[in-house]
Design a protein around this nucleic acid. Structure first.
Lengths: 230, 230
DNA sequence: CGGATTGGTATATAAACTATACCAATTAAT
DNA sequence: ATTAATTGGTATAGTTTATATACCAATCCG
């Protein structure tokens, strides 16, 4: 029965935001008073979290100006602020788990998806096509797409399971730079998923989502190798 | 960023214990001072939880004697003390999600399981055979068995996902009474899983766990129907 | 009966968080 | 360059939550 402190939660949340690319190196975080409203916390709590983040070297606070993200690699982050045993988790582990859960989810989604959700998927694909240049946005829409499918499964345990995994995903900084070709590939997979969902074609829907996740894993491998070589 | 109060956590924990059959109707909960040590909480916090539980009609507190479980049906419990949108979750939903996650897990377990875990499974099957009369113990060992397999997958995201689903399972009071035949069936499925794991036979391991979960679902259906008919 | 255990009550204390106010540094518009 | 707005820095009072003790009365059990 250990109590999770609010400012610690916030530290994790902000690290996740930075790791997911919402704020890049040198970017300024929102003003303390703004975050108060955003997270519905008092300024003292925000400052406590900021203090921790500065000690960790993740941000640099300038009086009268703001808090700025320092360039920090994933590996330097101390484990106590990361989710569970994140240290032992590879990107392949995450993809493997996602395949298990999302394949099951899309099977149900084929039966249960409604017109509104179908429209959401359509819109998201459109947004993805417009965001080929801005990869941060692109991967945001990608994740949203998968979220909609999970929701459409209408199976609460699966939804809960996916959310718990997404927590790991948020901390995976693997999407730093990807070729535009890869983006095109990703879009085509999502289109296949959508059309399979439209036709209630369980087999092809499952196939498409698995191939997409395989592809996502391959890209991450490429990035990791290039990181090592530099 | 909502703060989860300790006594609220405890209320949920105790409800889960009761729902899972650890305490049946009329049973006495451990003394407050004992729970203090057990959960490492102060007595004030325990009493706050007990007070909530009494207001909910889940326990009855007798001065100088103890806290006694009232006969309460699952449905009467207010949703704010239940996990997430538990109200909308059927047992079939849980089984479906478990199949997705556990099939994936046992595939990895075939590769990664070590001698110690194999021995644990062996011991658990033995305990299950000895607990055919005491169904509460039996289902406890059953769950432990699945836990070991999940752990043996060595995939943290899958483990996390399973834990989040187990939360739902704890609240499912479906195992009230089961015929002994069913128990024999369950044991045989677990033996099949174990032997498949020994032989690193992914296909048969996955088959066995799926059949077992199907069977578990069928039993719950039977119980539900008999509940309606009474 | 009598001692041990149990819930009932009260109180002092600490920690976490909120709410508010004011200052100084920075920034950006004029 | 001046000014007004915004930002972080600091201090403080108050609330909520949880801890730690102590003592009482009801209950239980040998």
């Amino acid at each position: 029965m250990n109590k999770e402190l609010l400012h610690t939660k916030l530290v994790r949340e902000i690290i996740a935001q930075i790791a997911s690319g919402a704020y890049s190196d040198g970017a300024r975080l929102p003003a303390e008073r703004k975050l108060c409203r955003q997270y519905n916390l008092s300024r003292g709590t925000i400052r406590q979290a900021f203090c921790d983040l500065e000690k960790l070297g993740i941000i640099r606070i300038k009086a009268g100006s703001g808090a700025y993200v320092q360039k920090v690699s994933q590996k330097k982050l101390p484990t106590n602020f990361l989710p569970q045993d994140f240290a032992n988790v590879t990107f392949s582990d995450i993809i493997f788990a996602r395949k298990a859960i999302e394949t099951a989810a899309i099977t149900l989604a084929c039966k249960n998806i409604d017109a509104r959700q179908m429209q959401q998927l359509e819109d998201l694909i459109h947004k993805m096509e417009l965001s080929k240049e801005n990869l941060l946005d692109f991967f945001k829409y990608d994740m949203d797409f998968h979220q909609v499918i999970i929701q459409a499964s209408n199976n609460m345990p699966l939804i809960t399971a996916f959310v718990s995994i997404a927590e790991y995903h948020k901390y995976s900084q693997v999407f730093s730079s990807v070729h535009e070709d890869e983006v095109d590939f990703a879009v085509s997979y999502h289109k296949k998923m959508l059309s399979a969902l439209k036709e209630r074609d369980i087999k092809n829907a499952a196939k498409a989502i698995n191939k997409h996740l395989d592809h996502t894993e391959q890209i991450s491998q490429i990035i990791k190798q290039s990181e090592i070589s530099t």
